[in-house]
């Protein structure tokens, strides 16, 4: 049996969704039988492969790097899953949308009590004007809301997707859960 290729990516999020994924615990071993984790912050691969079956995306699209990454990934993934509220609706990262990225940068890097106030530019991606949920940027096939979605829900959803079914998440998770 060929194992399904699974990838996970971490855009602008707190890694909580990945932690929740790991909370699947011993069932990970069972899962490992049917999947191959081809790309993830949890493994060592540096290059996103060309033909991934399922990619779980944590985090919102907040800077140029997120945007480039998710476009690249979308082209190489059959099923793209927005995992967690940041990916699904912007969530905490999108709080900055009410005041704008510049104001945030100034507040953080130009605070008067800093020894070297300066907004970093070299080697860091520029912020997008607005923090966006993943589906505003590329097509998303499945949404799993929750902050984070429970290990239970993730395990169920991934299982369904691997079985070729659309997971029915009614009454299983919600925004903020």
């Amino acid at each position: 049996m060929t194992r399904a290729k699974l990838a996970t990516v971490w855009l602008d999020g707190c890694s909580g969704c990945h932690m929740s994924f790991l909370d699947i615990d011993e069932r990970l071993l069972a899962l490992a039988e049917s999947i191959e984790l081809v790309y993830s912050p949890l493994v060592d691969n540096k290059v996103f492969p060309d033909d991934v079956d399922v990619t779980l995306v944590e985090g919102s699209v907040s800077n140029q790097d997120d945007l480039d990454k998710i476009r690249h990934i979308r082209q190489r993934t059959r099923l793209l899953v927005s995992l967690g509220d940041c990916a699904v609706m912007g969530n905490v990262p999108a709080l900055r949308n009410t005041i704008g990225g510049d104001a945030v940068l100034r507040r953080v890097y130009l605070a008067p009590d800093l020894t070297n106030p300066a907004i970093p530019t070299a080697g860091v991606p520029s912020l997008l004007p607005e923090v966006l949920p993943v589906h505003r940027v590329v097509k998303v096939d499945v949404f799993i809301p929750g902050c984070p979605p429970s290990a239970e829900v993730i395990f169920y959803a991934v299982g369904e997707l691997l079985a070729g079914r659309q997971p029915d998440l009614t009454d299983k998770t919600r925004f903020g859960a």
């Binding site: 699209v61 966006l132 940027v137 590329v138």
Partner: peptide, 9 residues
């Protein structure tokens, strides 16, 4: 304009 946010697909 050339869409300033050609960010969206």
């Amino acid at each position: 304009q050339t869409p300033q946010n050609a960010i969206e697909e």
